[in-house]
Design a binder for these strands. Structure first.
Lengths: 264, 264
DNA sequence: AGACGCGTTTTCACTGAATGAAAGCCGGCG
DNA sequence: CGCCGGCTTTCATTCAGTGAAAACGCGTCT
């Protein structure tokens, strides 16, 4: 046939969903087709099906957007809402005590994804978005997630060029490696003006029986608070959550490691 | 071929996603196949592609769950996180003032979907879940959403049997119709022990330029607070949000209609 | 130990769901 | 009016998808 034989229908459908981004949450059919690299009629047909099911919605302006139905399904992700559901009360507490930004993130490959954020109106503005991604090497949550990530992941991140956000951002792999060791030793991370020059974050790991699965942090104005004083607070929040996830429970017989067959 | 000719690949993929539910957020391949009504090999192939993309994830136990990637995409739904993002600070405020449950919901066809919920540790337990659905005729948010829904929707809901949750649940269409009129007149809804005998909720509409798009509510112990006293608080929150959504902005092309029956 | 049972993965010959070029449609604009 | 850009439909062609059946793994029962 015409374009790329070898492309599955499923991959096309997924490409259509992937066309949306925080920067362009609504798209026209033509934009969708272009971004998903599909001929217009093909896009048209798949999109129609997605709309019928509710994965996409069509606005009065004719533009397409992600539908509520997909949001509903997405909210069943254990690492998304499941985690969030558990964490929110504790995040609330942290927020109420400090009135600073509270963030919750997990690692997804070589980046982090923000699962939840409580943004105090009076706190330093942060440029993160729930569902948004960020590099692992700069933020507090990122440092924690990286420090406890599998070695392969760490090596891969350390091998790639580390993006600089401020004059203080650590971009030297050797220094970063040392920082990660410190984080593991201390059990928390402080990221001082690594992303913006006005903010500082204190982060702690969240564990389940298999290891570190998420990180929680407080983002404060860099000149306002004493990070070392706040660390125990954040650590405590992390531990409460870890306990809720069963991290300190007696490992009831090791889960047999299921050898994954490479690919299909 | 074998099963149902006429079933598109896309519909199969969507059926697989739809197999997950709050009650069963993780499934084995066989369960997935059964629920999606697909032969096992077919399910296996589609699922493999979904996992490769990140729409599904496979746990160490071999069970499948909704993947973080799908959660990310879902979080781009304007009626989901978009709305939530805007609402959360105001919900925080409501929570901090009252320490009661705060809920945000939109209507999806003939049900409501909870977009956000702040559950106070000290507040009445509520049985709702973010991403969960509920009937329109009982809760505070439901009454508001129904009161301002298109007539067809109201008729359809009133025509169907209204499920009873407590002895006080309104199940008589005639009474419900009267209640809806009251809600529109008052500009807020009070749902007293309609869902459980210990809770009561006060809800107000949230508008954008096209009408009511969501509802916000406070859920309190039925014997604890004076709902009429709390109503202005909830209404104010609704109005702040409506303003943020551009509800009271000059409709660009349209002549501003100053209705005599100004709705709160 | 061997045999059974259950869930998953792979094989393989067949076919209809998907395809896209081209033509038709619609609504806005000069 | 006639053009233009974006959307929708048609239709002959074909490749991605299919599922019965068989192989595979793994835990459990005898």
């Amino acid at each position: 046939m015409g374009t790329q034989p070898g492309r599955s229908v499923t991959s096309k459908v997924l490409a259509l969903l992937d066309a949306f981004s925080p920067a362009s949450p609504t798209l026209t059919l033509s934009e969708l087709a272009r971004r998903a690299e599909l001929p217009l009629p093909t896009a048209h047909r798949r999109v129609a099906e997605l709309v019928a099911w509710g994965a996409l919605e069509r606005g009065d302006d004719g533009r397409y957007r992600i539908g509520l139905r997909l949001w509903e399904v997405g909210s069943l992700a254990p690492r998304g809402l499941g985690l969030r559901e558990l964490a929110l009360p504790i995040m609330e507490d942290l927020y109420e005590v400090t009135h600073e930004n509270v963030q919750l993130a997990v690692r997804q490959n070589f980046e982090l994804v923000f699962i939840e954020r409580i943004a105090g109106r009076r706190a330093v503005p942060v440029l993160t978005r729930v569902g948004g991604r960020f590099a692992l090497h700069a933020t507090g949550v990122g440092l924690v997630l990286l420090a406890y990530a599998p070695t392969e992941v760490q090596e891969q991140v350390l091998a790639a060029p580390l993006e600089r956000y401020t004059a203080l951002t650590i971009t030297d792999p050797v220094r970063l490696r040392r920082r990660l060791a410190e984080v593991r030793r201390a059990g928390y991370a402080i990221s001082d003006r690594q992303v913006t020059m006005d903010a500082l974050s204190i982060a702690a790991p969240i564990r389940d029986p298999d290891g570190v699965v998420a990180a929680i942090s407080l983002v404060v104005a860099h000149d306002r608070a004493d990070p070392v004083a706040l660390a125990p607070l954040v650590q405590a929040a992390g531990r409460v959550l870890s306990r809720a996830l069963g991290a300190y429970r007696q490992p009831s017989g090791r889960v047999p490691l299921r050898s994954r067959h490479e690919r299909q």
